[in-house]
Nucleic acid binder design. Sequence first.
DNA 1: AATAGTCGCAACCGCCGCAGC
DNA 2: TGCTGCGGCGGTTGCGACTAT
Length: 300
Amino acid sequence: MAEPQRSRSRACSPGAPVELDDDHGQPGGAAQEEEQLELRRGPWTVDEDLTLVNYIADHGDGRWNSLARAAGLKRTGKSCRLRWLNYLRPDVKRGNFTADEQLLILDLHTRWGNRWSKIAQHLPGRTDNEIKNYWRTRVQKHAKQLNCDANSKRFKDAMRYLWMPHLVDADDHRRRVLHAQQQHAADVAAAAHGLSAGMVVTSSSDSFATTAESYDDVGGLYANLHAGEMAVVGGGGCWAEHEANHQGLWPAAADQSAAVAQAAGGGQFQDPELSGWVQGFSEGMITENFWALEDIWKIQ
DNA sequence: AATAGTCGCAACCGCCGCAGC
DNA sequence: TGCTGCGGCGGTTGCGACTAT
């Protein structure tokens, strides 16, 4: 079971009763008020988590207010629902966002804006809350570094032509490193068994896609995120539409990356879709106030 | 070592839409 | 038709952990 990473509390002390934690603040009777007086809020305790998990295991979720009462939890139904969906659900994925996921978030946010729940539907195991937090802490921080709004065209251009291509490259690089490591391990194993490395390579490296698939952790959504090589795998079902829709939104990321790299090196960089700001990279207008390519890379 | 500033994120808040009565 | 309860969503808060000075 998931353990809270750290205890947190809000205005009230953890587990402290509150006067009112009603969804709509409707007036209630004396009994209802008495019940509300006992409601807890703040960080969930291990006991509460166990109670909720066990109850849902036995009875299923839904009907959260009655669930909270039936389970004996002195929490609002809303609080129980949130705790379950964002933390206790067995399929909830924890830890840092992968390059795949970051890429997808950036792309989907470009299209849908702050529709976190909608975006979360395309990231199996991730919650809208987590994505929202990621956006607010990481992405908006970068927007701030650029002295622009996260919703501005300028920032979207930065994402589209700088960050996304680097994520693609980082992802590709990561997979190749993994593949190399696996091959090395196989070689070592083969050597230990007196086999030639070539024999093992033949059996282990005939399909890079296999490595990529096994590494893929976006619920089988993508097999290979490298621009132009995207393919639908598993039951994701959304990538065909995704790719069709992002024509122009995310054009040949690897090519753009190369173009940006060329531009950073002083070469000409012409693309009618680029705003003047990104075009400026080809004119050497990068300052310390802007992301350097290396910085973007480090961000990951 | 102490302090201040920043970050990450769980949890809460307020609003909205929908269903049932 | 209006009321009520509920689920869901996006926005916000606040605190412990971490980092810089």
